[in-house]
Design a binder for these strands. Sequence first.
DNA 1: ATGGTCGCCGAGCGA
Length: 266
Amino acid sequence: MKIATWNVNSIKARLPRVLEWLNGFQPDVALLQETKSQDDTFPALEIGELGYNVEVAGQKTYNGVAILSKSPLEVELTALPGDDKDDHARYIEALVTGKKGSVRVASIYLPNGNPTRDENGKDSEKFRYKLKWMERLIAHTGTLLQTEDAIVLGGDYNICPTDADVYNPAGFADDALCRPESRGRFRRLMYLGLTDAFRAFNTAPHLYSYWDYQRGAWQKDEGLRIDHLLLSPQAADRLKACGVDKTPRAKEKPSDHTPVWCELAD
DNA sequence: ATGGTCGCCGAGCGA
């Protein structure tokens, strides 16, 4: 079972890229972020024609997440628990029926958090929102792990876990993607017992999933590893492979992110 | 060089 995560940076602007990637790569489950589409205008018909069931949690202009699955899926949550006043569409969770029982998956678009400081040099509202959102994710993941399901939490975490995941660590030291407060919460999330699927197979430094549109970042391979597939023990036991598929990033009108995928034993 | 590039939507924000 191939499960992939991809921040598409607008599903409508990216539809040709997404359709050709689904056709070619044939993921069983695709976790999408930054769809930037309301639910009623999400191009579900075009994607459905390729054999995918589509579940979305969208909003106008910003954010938006989706889960595509070849086999039936049951939506469990369309928002991260813990704050009823949070109206950003950043989380959707579903149970996907697999040959070897169901897999619980989530598509996560964790807040970016930049700029980290306000005009007085204090932590900005955006950065504090990111940290609070991470606390909620830690709490909810703790609850999820008690199910002892095979769980794949995939998404754009907007976290470079270590300096090996950044092309220019010194330049990003004060960035919300690398700040100690962000990394500390990411470590707390991992220490609940999750496996970073990519690092189970790739120990080399400076392998990325995102390259800025600006300054020729893609051509110079100046990127960040911020898109992750985090696995519960029951999913990690079934992990056969994991990698980054860089081919969509090299095409015309690409997303600034490229898919990260893993394969679980059926 | 105090910018650069995208996508939202039709100005300026978010990334």
